[in-house]
């Protein structure tokens, strides 16, 4: 609330207010979009390491699948990043 009152007190014009809102929205878009893939990659890597430790002869296969899984999951963060570029950078 204090931050909002600071903004009001600063007397922003309509355009400035719009830019400030876009910057806040972009920050949220990028930040929130990075959380999901972070959890997903952690889960993928954790399970892959478990699989490789249990069955080292299948490590190559697991590594390939893990790499592709990580890259696909990361695409979600990249979509958030692109939204961030387009609306608020």
């Amino acid at each position: 609330m204090e931050a909002i009152s600071h903004v009001v007190a600063a007397g922003l014009t309509g355009d400035e207010q719009k830019k400030a809102n876009a910057a806040i929205g972009a920050g949220f878009a990028y930040g929130i979009a990075a959380i999901g893939p972070g959890i997903g990659i952690g889960y993928i890597v954790g399970k892959s390491v478990e699989a490789m430790a249990r069955q080292p002869e299948a490590a190559g296969m697991v590594r390939t699948t893990m790499f592709l899984g990580i890259a696909f999951t990361e695409a979600l963060a990249l979509i958030g990043f692109v939204v961030f570029i387009l609306i608020g950078l």
Binding site: P37, V49, M52
Partner: peptide, 24 residues
């Protein structure tokens, strides 16, 4: 494998950071 796990997770953050910096 433990180091690999850490490197992938921190690598994710670092790569996003590099991407942000490169565009910024």
């Amino acid at each position: 494998l433990g180091l690999m796990m850490g490197a992938i997770l921190f690598g994710y953050l670092i790569r996003l950071g590099i991407l942000f910096l490169a565009v910024y």
